[in-house]
Amino acid sequence: MKKLLSEFFKGIIKENPTFVLALGLCPTLAVSVSVINGIGMGVAATFVLLGSNMIIALIKNFIPARIRIPCYIVVIATFVTIAELAMKAYSPILDRALGIYVPLIVVNCIVLGRAEAYACKNSLVNSFMDGLGMGVGFTLALILISGIREFLGAGTILGHTVVKGFEPVFVMGMPSGALLLIGLLLGFFNLAKRRN
C-alpha cells in the first residue's frame, strides 16, 4: 500500500512531469492561457495516461520489443480519439479552446515516456497509480502556470475579475510569457530542492 502511494505521489512532486522531468512543455506553453483550459488539458491528458498505462501494462508480455513503439502509439491514439470525441460531444467550448492540442496529446512525451519508462515493466495496479500521479502532477502544474498567466495576463481567475482596474501584462497572454514563467518556476523549484 505504501509503495502504491509513493508511486502516486512521486508524479506530483519528486518526478513532476512539467517541473522535474520537463516533458510535454509544448502543450503547456500553448494552452495555459486560462485556468479552465489548463484543467481541461490536464484532465484529458490524465485520462489518456491512465488508459494507455493500464492497457500497456496488461499487454506488455504480448508485444514484441521490436515493434513496441508503434503498438504504444496505436493504444495512445485510441484513447486520445476517445477523449477528443467526448470533449466535442459534451463540451464544445473547451474543445474549441484547446483546439489542435487535444489530438496532439498522442505525441505528448509524458504519455509515451511513461509507457516506455514505466508501464512496460510494471504491474497493472502500479502502472495505474503511476499514470494517475503523473496526470495529477501535470494537471496541478498546468493549473499553477495558467493561474498565474490568467491573473497577470487578463486580471481574472476562472473568468472572474479579481482586482478591479488591473492593467494586464500583455506578454503573459502569449506563449513567450509562458516560457518565461515556466523558466522562473523551474528555477524556483530547483532552488527549493537545493535548500532541502
Binding site: I59, F62, I63, P64, R66, I67, P70, C71, V74, V75, A77, T78, T81, I82, L85, A86
Partner: peptide, 21 residues
C-alpha cells in the same frame, strides 16, 4: 508475426473507436 500482432492491436482499437464514434 510482428505484422499480425500490430494488425490485431489496430483492429481492436478501430473497433473500439467505431463504438465511441
Amino acid at each position: 508475426k510482428y505484422g499480425l500482432i500490430l494488425a490485431l492491436i489496430c483492429i481492436i482499437a478501430s473497433g473500439l473507436l467505431a463504438c465511441v464514434n
